[in-house]
Design a protein around this nucleic acid. Structure first.
Length: 636
RNA sequence: GCCGGGAUGGUGGAAUAGGUAGACACGCAAGACUUAAAAUCUUGUGGCCAUAUCGGCCGUGCGGGUUCGAUUCCCGCUCCUGGUACCA
């Protein structure tokens, strides 16, 4: 929307998502970079305002963004006119306004925007509430509630007010409604060696594409995969990174493509990897279709997924493939998080304060390598040895110890909280690690890494091994037919695993294996009829041990080639069911009854039970609910 | 602010076409084996009350609702957490 400037032909264009708060506008702020800001400065304020702009321009955008706390600005001396009520409002320059976003001008509503609020507080500007709610905690930016103190839109909801304001502006041609997409340009080159080279050469400083017959352009040999000594991209190290044309030899582009250049369409290429003519034969991409399941972290939503969907849609539009959406189903697997440790440096010094005392000083937190920390206590010697600047570090201790702060966050080299699984593999083996990760919890759940329960899965794998090695650790499997109980234990596990696989519920599968192996151990089962399918069941979870057992069972091909065992319902059929009997919603008795009983017979049996009679106290139930095979519920 | 995810024992978690809450595992306790320890095995383990027996009451973040019956469905909150952002 457009604000007129008092006593001037100039106009200020403002972008806002909260036009409903228009009656709460008490000033406008402009980005220091904007030309308009310079033009609106009046003589009276010239000195201070121009000095401020100069100072703000000297700070980089990064600096301005990282230093959110410092509030600064200057009054231009000009006033703008609110088109809704004709009110005159001061125009300020402020570095919290970014030139690159929107129009570089903000209509400030201190009551309903935190930054505007802080700014108004700092400079003593008016704060006018126009949405119903409590101002106790400063501004409140919520987008719900009723508009107040706002002339023609008072009493409307936020949503209604927005619509009415937009209509008002559009009618007078001083503004319009707009959908603002947050889009950024993306750079398609990298100054790295490992990436597809761009098929571009330069003649007279202008880029040209190399001829199709010269494709593919292959990475040149270089002595090191590092930038050149004078800071050029690694391909600058190649001896002859030039392109030969009829007119002579010209230098090739030295940047390479980013990772997603190739990773955005590999799933199409996989269907026809040797095709020399095109991306992939359309008949083949049609046959294979879209990717059934994409498992990746949620961060891929803005990375790989965005690009590969863009690629697919582009390829669809030019007719190269018939698939518009590349992935049928997506699961965001949860991240295994790390537990970070922090030390607290007193600002401007090389002194570090222990966690409990940090509030007494002006400190900034710093990640510290978790390998220097045990039970949140810092090993001072290791810490000092970490980096040259820390060699002279001093410490303020608590009871002679330095305690670190801790936080659960993403594992990352830059946070120094990475735990290496090699130690676990060394101690327990890769199968245990893999099985433990499966057992930890649902696939999609985030959680901090913690090895507290790993002994449980380790013991489980040993029990599995012992089933096949019953006496004195020697391998022995019987070819005798399995008993009913043994088959039942096995088929319960088969059934559960089939269901769990379909739901990606791996942790519950592991627990059903544990139940099965515990039962088979109790039964002393070492029958091939049971142990062969069991090895197959476990193989996706503990592939090494399963492969080993498979080979001991006498197979010469890999267990990965074995067919999944067929589930047979008949082994699980029960003749009886232990009915829970609820009286007024509480469990009062249990009755073991044949499943063949009719509802009437179940009722009779339940009413005849002594426990039930005790609770009925001679009365007959008002209502009887019986779900065969599930429950009996009596209402008294 | 916006967009996600979540809250169940001491711990990780299980159970949702509404039907016995706490499977499986860790930890803890007691016992067996051992000169001892480790390892292994057995038993117990939600809380409170109880003549510690028979048993009873409470209990899935909080407050309501629907239902014979709610961890599960509905309404209203609180808190935690991931991503993102001086984005107006």
């Amino acid at each position: 929307m457009v604000f007129e400037v008092k006593g001037s032909s100039k106009k200020i264009q403002v972008f806002t998502t909260r036009v409903d708060t228009i009656y709460g506008v008490t000033f406008l702020s402009l980005a220091p970079e904007s030309d308009l800001a310079a033009e609106l400065i009046t003589d009276e304020h010239r000195q201070t305002a121009e000095a401020y702009i100069q100072q703000a321009k000297n700070r980089s955008e990064r600096e301005r963004m990282s230093d959110v706390k410092t509030i600064s600005g200057a009054f231009t001396g000009s006033y703008a006119i609110n088109p809704f009520n004709g009110e005159e409002i001061p125009v300020w320059v402020a570095d919290y306004v970014l030139a690159g976003y929107g129009t570089g001008a903000v209509m400030a509503v201190p009551a309903h925007d935190e930054r505007d609020y802080n700014f108004a507080k700092h400079f003593g500007l008016e704060i006018r509430q126009v949405i119903e709610g409590s101002m106790e905690n400063g501004s409140f930016p919520g987008k719900t509630g009723t508009v107040i103190n706002s002339g023609m839109i008072s009493g409307l909801s936020v949503k209604e007010a927005m619509a009415k304001c937009i209509a008002f502006l559009e009618e007078r041609k001083i503004g319009r409604g707009k959908i603002q997409y947050r889009m950024r340009d993306a750079i398609f080159t990298r100054q790295r060696y490992w990436g597809e080279p761009l098929p571009v050469y330069f003649k007279d400083g202008l880029p040209y594409l190399i001829e199709e017959k010269d494709l593919p352009l292959v990475l040149p040999e270089v002595d090191k995969y590092l930038p050149t000594e004078d800071g050029d991209a690694p391909l600058g190290r190649a001896k002859n990174w030039n392109y030969q044309t009829a007119e002579g030899e010209f230098p090739l582009e030295r940047s390479t493509m980013p990772g997603w250049a190739g990773s955005s369409w590999y799933f199409f290429r996989y269907t026809d990897p040797k095709n020399e003519e095109c991306l992939a034969d359309k008949a083949k991409t049609d046959y294979w279709g879209a990717v059934d399941l994409y498992i990746g972290g949620s961060e891929h939503a803005t990375g790989h997924l965005l690009y590969s969907r863009f690629w697919a849609k582009f390829l669809y539009d030019i007719g190269a493939v018939s698939i518009e959406e590349p992935f049928q189903k997506m699961i965001n697997q949860g991240m295994i998080q790390g537990r970070s440790n922090f030390v607290y440096r007193i600002k401007g010094t090389n002194t570090f304060v222990s966690y409990g005392l940090r509030e007494q000083h002006d400190t900034s937190a710093m990640h510290v390598d978790v390998n220097f920390v045990h039970n949140d206590q810092l090993n001072l010697d290791k810490f000092k040895f970490w980096r040259p600047d820390l060699a002279t570090a001093e410490f303020i201790l608590e009871e002679g110890k330095y305690y670190c702060g801790a936080e659960v966050e993403k594992m990352s080299k830059s946070k120094y909280n990475v735990v290496n699984p090699d130690d676990i593999i060394e101690r327990y083996g890769a199968d245990t690690l893999r099985l433990y990760e499966m057992f930890l919890g649902p696939l999609e759940q985030f959680k901090p890494w913690n090895t507290n329960g790993i002994d449980g899965v380790y013991k489980f794998l040993r029990k599995v091994w012992n089933l096949y090695h019953p006496a004195n650790g020697g391998f022995a499997v019987s070819d005798a037919p399995a008993s009913k109980e043994e088959l039942k234990a096995l088929h319960k596990a088969i059934k559960k695993m089939e269901e769990d696989m379909a739901n990606y519920s791996f942790n519950t599968s592991v627990s059903s294996f544990m139940i099965c192996v515990n039962e088979l151990t109790t039964l002393g089962c070492n029958k091939r009829e049971v142990l062969e399918p069991l090895a197959i069941l476990i193989s996706p979870y503990a592939p090494h041990i399963a492969e080993e057992l498979w080979s001991l069972l006498g197979h010469s091909t890999s267990i990965t080639r074995a067919a999944f065992p067929e589930f047979r319902e008949e082994y699980l059929v029960e003749s009886n069911f232990e009915y829970p009997v609820m009286i007024n919603g509480k469990l009062r008795a249990k009755l073991d009854l044949p499943l063949t009983l009719t509802v009437t017979d179940i009722e009779k049996a339940a009413l005849a039970d002594t426990q039930v009679q005790k609770w009925l106290e001679g009365k007959s139930p008002k209502k009887v609910i019986i779900v065969p095979g599930k429950i009996v519920n009596l209402v008294v």
